[in-house]
Each structure stands twice: as C-alpha cells, then as structure tokens.
Nucleic acid binder design. Structure first.
Length: 492
RNA sequence: GGCGGCGUACCCAAGUGGUAAGGGAGCGGUCUGCAAAACCGUUAUGCACCGGUUCGAAUCCGGUCGCCGCCUCCA
C-alpha cells in the first residue's frame, strides 16, 4: 500500500517516494530555547514523533533530525533580563524541553543539532550565496536578496509584489530591499558573536536549518516538517537559501502541523492563555495528552478545553477498562487458533486480523491517526460484546480470539504511543493524576468509604447513599465489589 | 486588502462520488439494597445555506453566510 501525504509545496496529497529506496531523511524545526514550551510545541513534537514511528513501522530506515535554535534575539533578551548568559538560557530550556517531551513519550531524534555548534557550516553557506550573487554584505551583516531568487513564494503561495505592498515600515536601513532577510547579523555589544569574513556577528535564524539539514541529510532530502506558522517566512526562506546555494531542489515533501487553540482562541503570551507542558503533565497522564492530540488529524486545528481533554481521558480510560478483560481472557490462551470456531467467531477473528490493515490504510492516508483509533474501537466494541456474553466462561476459542486482539493492538500501540500500557497500571497511574488534578484528599476519601462500609453493614443505606453523594460531589465514584470491598476512582 | 483553510448530532471527530466510522455525554433496559462498571438497545432521512453536474453528492462545480490562520517573532 502506498503512503500518501499532503505536501504543503504542491497543496496536494502525493504518494511518498523516498529518494533512496528504503531510506528517509527527515528534518523538523525544533524550538528556540528561550522559554518553557507549551502544548503547541508538544503537538508538533508528538505529531512528527508518530510520523517517524510510522515510517519505521513501514520498514524505512529513517534519519530524523530536529534542531535547537540556541542563538537568537529572544534568547539574548531573556538572558539580559535574567542577568545570565545566553548559553545558560538555551541549556536550561533545551533540558526542560527534552524532559517534557520525554514525559510525553516523544522519542529523541537521531540527531539534535544546535545552531551554535554549526557556525562554520553557516558561514560557508552564506559565502556561497554571496558568491552566487544571491546575498550581499552591508555594514557587517549579510542579507539574502529575495528578488534574486525566482521561486520565492512557492511554498507559502505568496508573490513578491503582494509581500511588498503588505510590508511594514522597515527600520533597517542596511537592507537594499525590505523583503530581504538576514543571513548573518553584525553583533551589537554584549551579544554572542563569532568571527566571520564580515566581522564579528551571529547567524540569522533561517540559515541554521538549511545548513544543518544539508550537513546531516544532504540535498535534496525527503521530508521537512514544522508548525503551520513556519511556512512563511521561515521555510520559504530556507528554500530560497538552500536552493539558491546549491541550484538543486532542497526538500521533496513539506509537512506542517496545525495549531492548538485554547478555548477557541490562539495561544499567545499577550492573551495569557499559554498552556505550558509543565502544567499539563502534572494533571494529565501523558497517554491522555497523546490521545487528545492524535485523535484529530495532524493538520486540523485542535481546541484545548477542559471538556475536550476530559473527553479524551474518558475515552482512553474506557479503552483500558474494556481492554483489561480482553487481556485477561487472552493471557490464558494456550494454543493458536487450532480450534473450530463458530461462524460468528470466525468473522470476529477475521475482523481482528484485518485491524492491522485498517490501521495501515488510515495511516497511509496522510497519517490519519484519528481514523486509526476509530478502527481499534470499532473492533473492540464487537469483541467486548462477545466476551461479556460469555461471562467468565471463556472457551479456548474466546481466549484465542482475545489473544489475537491483544496481539493486533501490540502492533499498533508502539506507533501511536498509547493503548500499550498494562491496563491495571494505567488505571492506577491515571487515578493519581486525577487526584492531583482535583486536589483530592485521599485519606479523607478512605475514611468516608470506611464509614460507608460500616453504615452498609448496619443496613443503614440512607447514610451510605449520603456518603456516596458526598464523594460523588468530590468527583469520586464508588464501585462496590462482590467481595464486599469498595473501590474508588476519579470521575473526569 | 492579498493568500490559505474550515463549517458533519449536545460535545469531540473520521469520512473526497455509492447511500453517515469511532469516542464522550444523554436516554431506556439487564445487573445492583441503591449505585458504579460492564453488556444490550437508542440518539443526524441528514453533513452551514442556496443552486448546479450526476443514475447517485457530506464528498465535484458555482454562489451566499459564518469562523479561523498566515501576510511581523511564533509549534
């Protein structure tokens, strides 16, 4: 089955054909390390994490590069504000980012290059652009001459005239044309700087990605990804630089993920509605966050609201609750499908065995994770009905069928990064997040449950129900087990 | 103003020509002291609206309305 993906460059879905058979070079714009990262960064990281995992699942040998911008105006500002070095700032936030992403189950890329460690490569790239007439030096800075590059605007669908008319008043007198962008910036006092043929300075933002991607992946390479907002000007400029310098194609497929809104508003510092990962990961299970993000298509916008993420949590809890019974039944299977199955059982088994195909069909269609998740639930629905109808009187066929489902899920879950936990373990873990989220007083819950047990013992059901109501109001749900004990969980 | 995207049930969300996946929530039932969970059943004659193409449209075309993004740093 061919993999089809939406290429921003052509604005169409295209069949994915790697340059080298069986190998994929992929570069994704990471973060500028000047502040804590938020849900939007997490979405980008998670989405491309899944894309890489799926490419590997398909058997590709993937080289995944994700950079860190560790020299930039924002970092300098932050360093000045905090009275520390730029390096300290970037190190701090890179570390935090890696910690956050690790918590969300995002695997590290194969290569995570930093801009400051590739200054010679960038200088070389700038020199080449000057040599070829695409760039010019001015007062110790170097600019890319946008009008010299004929394909400018092909990624973002803009044309130079429109950009010109929409351009803001340029304060920078050193540029020949307001559309030109900096490849190399002459350093001001107190800024990080490196020697260069144009005097001491630092690289512009865009040049790092073209220089580092070329170094690690060559030119052209297969996939370049990032958030939608990077299409213009960042990726447009990368194309201009890279293609200007080498005279060849830069990237074959451009992939861009959609944004996360908060209560239908764009996340922004000025609105004060940033959802930091540090905040989210304290109160939601990482699998819930992944599920929430991946239950929409990667290019669609996602609206983060309490209701929506709770909805995701309930869905995932629901999955594990049902799945647990299936796992238990399946774990006692002792032989593989040697039995005679009824017609209905055979149909069910066939559906389970085609789950993998449905998953691949969905994923092959521009990484449709939402569709993939749907197909898992669809089959599980039918299976859970079948299992429940047999109570605990599982036949060998029941066990084998359950084992087949567990096996199918185990193929899928490593790609998605959820559905793969031990169900009981997930339940416990998720409960701890619920306790934290709602600030529950666990000892108090325990004593109320004891009190209720006592009341029930005396057949004082009025009091028992009163206590249950009290607990319900605290988001605590009770489950009286047949053995007389009571289990509690958090209702989201 | 220019460019692009979106509008599917109470909420979320798949579905790009063959008669509306899935999840959450709700409702009815089985079970239970009562609940919860689980299971069974149920909730869009219709996919913003109006036209058109077609045997057939949520899907294609034209128009209208509404929402959003980018055009400046941004995942």
């Amino acid at each position: 089955m061919p993999l089809v993906l939406y290429n921003t460059l052509s604005r169409k879905k295209e069949e994915f054909v790697p340059l080298k058979d069986g190998r994929v070079g992929m570069y994704v714009c990471g973060i500028t390390a000047y502040d804590s990262c938020h849900l939007g960064h997490a979405r980008a990281a998670i989405v491309f994490d899944v894309i890489v995992r799926y490419l590997r699942y398909k058997g590709y040998d993937v080289t995944y590069v994700r950079n860190y911008t560790d020299v930039d105006d924002k970092i300098i500002n932050r360093a000045n504000r905090d009275g520390v070095s730029c390096r300290e700032i970037s190190e701090r936030y890179i570390k935090e980012y890696e910690d956050d992403m690790g918590a969300l189950g995002v695997a590290m890329p194969d290569i995570a290059p930093r801009a400051t460690e590739h200054i010679p490569e960038m200088i070389e790239a700038v020199e080449k652009l000057i040599e070829k007439g695409f760039a010019y030096e001015s007062n110790g800075s170097v600019y890319f001459s946008v009008r010299k590059f004929p394909g400018y605007g092909k990624l973002s669908g803009k044309n130079i005239e429109e950009l010109e008319s929409g351009a803001r008043v340029e304060v920078d007198e050193t540029k020949k044309d307001p559309l030109d962008f900096a490849l190399w910036k002459a350093s001001k006092p107190g800024e990080p700087k490196w020697p260069s043929p144009w005097g001491e300075g630092r690289p512009g933002w865009h040049i790092e990605c073209s220089a580092m991607s070329a170094k690690y992946l060559g030119q052209p390479f297969d996939i370049h990804g990032g958030g939608r907002d990077l299409v213009f000007p960042h990726h447009e400029n990368e194309i201009a630089q890279a293609e200007g310098a080498c005279g060849c194609q830069f990237v074959r497929y451009w992939l861009h993920n959609g944004f996360i809104n908060i209560n239908a508003e764009k996340m922004s510092k000025s609105l004060g509605n940033i959802k930091a990962i540090g905040e989210i990961r304290e109160i939601f299970d990482p699998e819930v966050v992944r599920y929430f993000i991946l239950s929409s298509h990667y290019r669609s916008p996602i609206d983060y609201t309490e209701e929506n993420i709770n909805n995701a949590e309930r869905a995932l809890v629901g999955f594990y609750t049902t799945y647990e019974q299936i796992v238990i039944a399946g774990s006692s299977a002792h032989r593989p499908f040697a039995l005679s199955l009824s017609k209905g059982e055979q149909d069910l088994l066939n559906k389970i065995q085609s789950l993998k195909n449905h998953f691949e069909e969905a994923m092959d269609d521009d990484f449709n994770t939402a569709g993939a998740v749907g197909s898992v639930f669809e089959v599980m629905n039918e299976l859970s009905g079948y299992v429940a109808a047999r109570k605990k009187n599982w036949t060998d066929a029941t066990k084998d069928i359950c084992a087949a489902f567990v096996d199918a899920v185990s193929k899928i879950s490593p790609v998605l990064g959820f559905f793969g936990a031990d169900p009981a373990g997930f339940r416990e873990r998720n409960k701890r997040f619920g306790v934290k989220r709602y600030g529950l007083d666990v000892p108090k819950i325990g004593s109320l449950i004891n009190e209720r047990a006592e009341a029930r013992g005396h057949k004082n059901f009025a009091r028992a129900d009163e206590i249950r109501k009290e607990l319900n109001a605290m988001k605590v749900e009770l489950n009286d087990r047949p053995d007389g004990t009571t289990e509690w969980f958090v209702r989201s």
